[in-house]
Design a protein around this nucleic acid. Structure first.
Length: 554
RNA sequence: GCGCCCGUAGCUCAGUUGGAUAGAGCGCCGGGCUUCGAACCCGUAGGUCGCAGGUUCGAGUCCUGCCGGGCGCGCCA
């Protein structure tokens, strides 16, 4: 389409029908209103000022000189203030359908990413407690984004950064140890800022069975509680994620940064770059030279490195491992941290767009018409596991992925639970199951499809049939667009639309028997079954990218 | 006080580098199953796109200022 337009405009330049100017930023879009054709462009409007002519006049010059050499177009018209609306000929749409049918599970796969190595870091929950709803949102988002990026030709690595070096991990150990002590001495004081959840008590029980905490020094016992507690929590996190259909390629330990000396050598490079200075006995990095609102400490007065220091070295390490691009998915409460991270990376000469941080806004949980405040320290929260137990993986993932990540999400647990049949995920899945059912029906009537749809597709002439094909044609470019904008939620809306188009089409046949998919005319049945089969493939591909099952029966 | 995100139908939310008459689901009201799955379809009602300016052929979308809500502003992680 764009090729036709470009050929046309250069031809008009050559012939002197239009004065030669640089091409403006025009768009070719799919209009909302079907009356406006299959595609529309605002090219004449954008040319108006440089050409110093009326948009409609420019439009008529372009239309009269259209270079449609492949015979792509069925009709062209000038509309409104100076849009050009195009209709594609049916045979072109049939070609799209053939393409879907031959590619099937690979339909939508693109080379947009050019095999670029990209690292997506997400969830990265501290191993001090179970995953909660916020983590679930990050997990669903990150996982789906990775699936889409891979599908679009990126070489994706999924990474979970384990914050196992800091204060909070010690606090886990102390909390567990305290619960252990309290088994014998209920008055034993609980540490300030300790973790209060019931799971701490479980850890204390299990660890005290495995290790003889009683006869160890307090220091040694706390150390065991810390190490075992951390390992067990991490194990639980891995299980929860796996059940949520989220897999990671790399589990990267913050401790490893210290142990391997990477942190130290990274800080040496920072110092070489002369962006570090001494003040009041601490080491500061001049992030304010690179867009941060103030400088930051990387090494404290007591010689300890800050969390920021290890995070900088972690990102230097990511780059060193050869990634051309990094995407971090963080909770919105870390947003203040973004400018300093970017500043530190700029100080190291990273390209400005090397790191993209996606901030996910809060998940607010509602139950019985009331908001439930969640706090990990207070031990008062709903875990991802509990939610999945109640509503199932498919529904939870779909709800998370239906909202844009930078908007807070109200998760009404009663609604999602009771919704069962009203939940939009079932609407899409039902489309898939329904098509499977039609094929079962066709088989029971002895209808078998030819290997190829050649010569049959001109039977597809209904508006609803064309609408389905047009929808499917958008799929690959939608995925590219999602890769570019990092907005996976658009896929859920696409699938809902596609399923709606199918349900609508299907329902034609409840009124008029000739419009059924399996109908009296055999060739028409074949053509419609091919169409349905293609829709089934696209729904399955889309659900697959969302990490949601495509059931054959429901 | 400063910074980031959000504000669109009764509710929850979409709205594709600015495009033509602002959409969906839920809820309300009313229709549609004697053969392909009614977990579906069709229709009615419901809007000052928070407010006010600005940019232009054109603004829910971009800019400025307000209002309202959320989240951050440690030598914590």
């Amino acid at each position: 389409m764009d090729a036709v337009l470009k050929a046309t405009i250069y031809d008009c330049f050559e012939k002197g029908l239009l004065s030669k100017t640089p091409l403006p930023d025009y768009v070719i879009e799919i209009p909302n209103n079907p009356d406006h054709g299959h595609f529309a462009t605002n090219l004449p409007l954008t040319l108006a000022s440089s050409q110093k002519r009326a948009p409609r006049e420019i439009a008529s010059v372009l239309v009269e000189n259209l270079k449609d050499e492949g015979d792509l177009l069925e009709s062209t018209e000038i509309a409104g203030p100076g849009f050009i609306n195009f209709r594609i000929s049916p045979t072109e749409w049939h070609a799209v359908l053939c393409n879907v049918l031959s590619l099937r599970a690979d339909y939508g796969r693109t080379t947009y990413g050019n095999n670029e190595k990209v690292l997506v870091e997400f969830v990265s929950a501290n191993p001090t407690g179970p995953l909660h709803l916020g983590h679930g949102r990050g997990a669903a988002l990150g996982d789906t984004l990775c699936r889409i990026l891979s599908f679009c030709g990126y070489e994706v690595t999924r990474e979970f950064y384990i914050n196992d070096a800091g204060q909070q991990i010690k606090m886990l150990g102390e909390s567990v140890f305290c619960r252990f002590k309290q088994m014998y001495d209920p008055a034993y004081p609980f540490p300030d800022n300790g973790y209060h959840g019931d799971y701490i008590l479980d850890l204390a029980r299990i660890i005290s069975e495995e290790a003889d905490l009683k006869n160890l020094s307090e220091e040694a016992a706390i150390d065991i509680c810390t190490q075992k507690g951390k390992a067990m929590m991490l194990d639980e996190i891995k299980q929860d994620l796996s059940r949520f259909r989220v897999a990671f390629d790399v589990w990267y330990s913050e401790n490893a940064l210290y142990d391997s000396g990477l942190l130290k050598s990274a800080l040496d490079t920072i110092k070489e770059k002369e962006h570090v200075y001494d003040r009041e006995g601490a080491q500061w990095i001049k992030t304010s030279d690179f867009g941060d609102d103030k400088d930051r400490v990387i090494q404290k007065k007591d010689g300890q490195f800050t969390y920021f220091a290890s995070d900088i070295s972690y990102h230097l390490e990511k780059k060193r491992r050869g990634f051309k691009k990094a995407i971090n998915i963080w909770g919105a409460d870390h947003h203040g941290y973004v400018p300093r991270m970017n500043a530190a990376l700029l100080a190291h000469g990273f390209p400005e767009d090397w790191l993209s941080v996606m901030l996910i806004q809060l998940v607010k949980l509602w139950k019985g018409g009331q908001e439930i405040k969640m706090s990990k320290r207070a031990g008062d929260f709903v875990t991802l596991k509990e939610l999945v137990d109640e509503v199932g993986v498919d529904a939870v993932r779909f709800v998370f992925l239906t909202k844009s990540h930078d908007s807070t999400l109200d998760f009404d647990i009663d609604l999602v639970k009771k919704q069962d049949s009203d939940n939009p995920v079932y609407y899409v899945q039902y489309g898939h199951a329904r098509i499977c059912s039609i094929f079962r029906k066709a088989a029971s009537e002895g209808i078998s499809l030819p290997d190829r749809p050649d010569g049959l597709l001109e039977r597809l002439i209904l508006d609803e049939e064309m609408a389905l094909i047009r929808r499917m044609a958008e799929f690959p470019s939608l995925l590219d667009e999602i890769s570019r904008t990092l907005e996976p939620h658009r896929l859920t809306y696409y699938l809902t639309d596609l399923a709606a188009s199918f349900h609508k089409y299907f329902n034609l046949g409840t009124k008029i028997p000739e419009y059924r998919i399996v109908t009296n005319d055999r060739e028409t049945s074949h053509a419609r079954l091919f169409l349905a089969d293609a829709v089934r493939a696209v729904i399955a591909n889309g659900l697959g990218l969302l990490g949601i099952s495509a059931p054959e029966r429901m």
